[in-house]
Design a protein around this nucleic acid. Structure first.
Lengths: 346, 346
DNA sequence: GCGTAGAATGACAGCGCTGTCATCGGCGCT
DNA sequence: AGCGCCGATGACAGCGCTGTCATTCTACGC
């Protein structure tokens, strides 16, 4: 099993182990010719640093943790892929960490997690990134982190941040529906305590206001980020005496539920009712009709956040960044048909 | 930051560090009263072992790798969840490792991966688990692994294995369609080089044979495990002079493509054409109509494989296990309607 | 040619744990 | 009483790397 170690390389290159370490870690103050010799030895021996030893010895393990608390499988995986891409490129390891963002001991759980493996830092995704008290505790423990937040850029933020302006995107989707001529637009909320959900509702309300369309309480239905709630919520909306001509689901899974509810009621989408989602998950592309939605590249966002984190760990100062989801118009939205022509099938 | 170490606990419990180590690792030969004292100290100090140190010092890192090469995001995530469940329960770490199963240096890549982090072992999922030559090399490197294989249990297998009998499940789905009265059943293949895909095709053929229905070459269409191939393949089938009355997609994503193709052609599912998938992914539940499919609990299967692996690492002998996917009948399949009554909408 | 700053390199300890082997004590046996 | 044996415990080295600090080398100015 004899894995090649620093010492082996050092012997071959006729330098000390420390110098090899310097080369491996790209430190300055190694003469180019020495560096060459070391690199050659590394290649000849096919040396790979032992990450455990490096982590144990150094001040941190060159590994970051991705912290999430989200029921949405697809979302988690995109985030993981983004984080993995950044980590692979920068030679860091990645640990996934599900958690309960509402737990009172959140900060301490995360501290233990970091200490056990000497993690270099954490990427905090929503809704974990919204627990401000926990963030302060983490900062007090000197744990580097970058958070991803559903909000507009805010210069007063004291913690490094990648912003995703969900309000803006929800505004765009609602505007799109309004411009198509819809005046009664249903809104299916997700995650009650989830800040992103509130932002999306805000975008919806703001758009209605700006277009001079009154907000109707009965068109906003609570629920969670899951299919069944989308189905039930849409059913409720469609059963109203005056049903909406369009429904905006707070994420794609909710919209999928709404789509199924409409179709099971014999309505044709988008002719009888328009449906829009939020997320650009595979479902939105694979359903029929494909969903109009907001493209949110969770992978790219998290990759960026990961790079920011690693840069900070390396001592750099990094500027916050904002990513705005963009409107993707697909087949599930169209102008409303006049009520008289609405028809039931089957 | 001062994390609590073994020595701290040892000092408090008035024993040596080694004894604390024994208690932590559940070794015998510690007097119960000593053990109690140590446990109390651990609790009082809230001690957590440093995984890096343990891994560096011990013969392995109490961490396993989950190796995959699969384009299906949902599948990967379920597997990850299963592995995480087992690892959490048994106090192991988990590293995810995507790879190219067709790379000639596969075994060496994996060896490097294992050595870098001193991994305890690997769980190999399909199609990586099918590369027999690589498996032999891994075994020669003394790397423990458990593989998950799409096949019927085979006592001649020399490597530990969790079997998933895809042929059987595909047989069940095809039988279901045949029993409904379908005689022309289209089959959309996935991953050309993927053994599981061949097994599913086999199940399809076997069922046809057993029901005395001739196999029609033109009803079997090649493609990959992706939506677009399902869409295109189904289009091709539906455009035949004598189109099939049912289509069986090799996984849910392919079936989703077929569903979209049928609906975009104005066909009503399942009245005009039945569609079945394979996998029981969320899509199959969230589409309209929901898909008849084969339930494959990737999470449970991988959790089991992970437990097997960890048991083996601990020196135990473990028996191979087989999981058979089960047929899940939903709304996308129904008896064929007579051809004359078939109608186009829109 | 000499002194010296600053760059290049090396020696060494130690990160927190486990494997190995030595040690200690108590018990049962002759 | 003396012996051996085994269970319980501890001392110590070392896993492979990095941080710190000491040492050596180089180049430049006078």
């Amino acid at each position: 099993m004899g894995a090649v170690t620093l010492d082996d390389v050092a012997g071959r290159a006729r330098v000390s182990a420390k110098t090899v370490s310097r080369v491996v870690n790209g430190e300055r103050s190694v003469r180019p010719e020495t560096r060459q010799r070391v690199l050659r030895a590394i290649e000849q021996l096919d040396y790979r640093p032992n990450l455990l030893a490096r982590g144990l010895s150094g001040s941190h393990a060159y590994t970051i943790g991705l912290v999430y608390d989200n029921p949405n499988a697809y979302y988690i995986l995109s985030m993981q892929q983004g984080a993995l891409a950044a980590c692979d490129a920068l030679n860091f390891g990645l640990q996934m960490r599900p958690c309960n963002s509402r737990s009172p001991g959140l900060a301490e759980e995360l501290r233990d997690f970091v200490q056990r493996s000497r993690l270099s830092g954490l990427v905090l995704t929503t809704p974990v990134s919204e627990r401000v008290a926990a963030l302060h505790r983490l900062a007090a423990y000197h744990i580097p982190f970058v958070r991803i937040l559903s909000a507009a850029r805010d210069p007063r933020d004291e913690f490094p941040c990648v912003y995703v302006d969900d309000r803006d995107a929800a505004y765009a989707i609602t505007s799109h529906l309004l411009q198509l001529g819809h005046a009664r637009i249903g809104f299916l909320r997700g995650g009650k305590h989830h800040h992103a959900s509130a932002e999306r509702l805000k975008g919806y309300k703001d758009a209605l206001r700006d277009y001079g369309v009154p907000l109707r309480k009965e068109l906003v239905v609570d629920g969670d980020y899951v299919f069944d709630d989308g189905f039930r919520g849409a059913r409720r909306l469609l059963d109203l005496a005056e049903p909406p001509t369009a429904i905006f689901g707070c994420n794609d899974e909710i919209a999928a539920g709404a789509l199924a509810a409409a179709q099971s009621a014999g309505l044709q989408v988008p002719y009888d009712v328009s449906i829009a989602g939020f997320e650009d998950s595979p479902f939105s592309r694979h359903s029929w009709p494909p969903l109009t939605t907001a493209r949110q590249r969770a992978d790219i966002i998290v990759e960026h956040a990961t790079r920011m984190l690693i840069a900070r760990i390396g001592g750099g100062e990094v500027d916050n960044e904002a990513f705005n989801p963009e409107l993707v118009v697909r087949g599930s939205t169209a102008p409303p048909r006049s009520k008289s022509r609405r028809r039931k099938r089957r």
